[in-house]
Amino acid sequence: MTAAVRELRDRHPGPEVRTRHLEFGQERAALPGHRIDAILAPEPIPAGRLRVRALYDEPRYS
Score class of each variant (00 low, 15 high):
Asp37Pro: 00
Glu27Thr: 12
Asp57Cys: 10
Ala4Asn: 03
Gly48Phe: 02
Ala41Met: 05
His34Gly: 14
Ala38His: 02
His12Ile: 10
Arg49Cys: 09
Leu31Ala: 08
Pro15Asp: 11
Val5Cys: 12
Ala3Arg: 12
Pro15Asn: 11
Arg60Trp: 15
Gly33Thr: 01
Gly25Tyr: 11
Gly14Pro: 03
Pro42Ser: 13
Ile45Lys: 02
Arg9Cys: 04
Gly25Thr: 13
Pro46Arg: 12
Pro42Met: 10
Glu23Phe: 11
Arg20Phe: 12
Ala3Ser: 14
Pro15Thr: 08
Leu55Pro: 00
Ala47Leu: 03
Gln26Leu: 03
Val17Asn: 06
Arg9Asn: 05
Ile39Ser: 12
Asp10Gly: 02
Tyr56Thr: 14
Leu50His: 05
Pro59Ser: 02
Arg11Trp: 07
Ala30Ser: 05
Arg49Phe: 13
Glu58Trp: 12
Gly25Pro: 08
Met1Ser: 01
Ile36Glu: 01
Arg11Lys: 10
Leu40Phe: 14
Glu23Pro: 04
Arg9Trp: 04
Val5Gln: 12
Thr19Leu: 05
Gly25Trp: 09
Glu23Tyr: 11
Tyr61Pro: 00
Pro42Tyr: 08
Leu31Pro: 01
Ala4Tyr: 09
Ile36Ala: 11
Arg11Ala: 14
Gly48Tyr: 00
His12Asp: 10
Ile39Tyr: 01
Glu23Thr: 08
Arg49Asp: 14
Ile39Thr: 07
Pro44His: 07
Pro44Ala: 13
Ala41Tyr: 02
Leu55Arg: 10
Leu40Tyr: 12
Val5Ile: 15
Gly48His: 03
Pro15Lys: 13
Arg11Ser: 13
Arg9Lys: 06
Arg35Cys: 05
Ala29Arg: 04
Ala47Phe: 00
Pro13Ile: 15
Arg35Met: 09
Asp10Ala: 05
Pro32Leu: 09
Thr19Lys: 02
Leu40Asn: 13
Thr2Met: 07
Pro32Thr: 07
Ala41Lys: 06
Glu58His: 14
His12Phe: 10
Tyr56Phe: 15
Glu43Ile: 04
Tyr61Asp: 06
Arg20Asn: 07
Ala29Phe: 08
Leu31Trp: 01
Ala3Asp: 14
Pro32Asn: 07
Glu43Cys: 04
Pro15Ala: 12
Pro42Ile: 05
Glu16Ala: 15
Phe24Gly: 13
Arg51Trp: 00
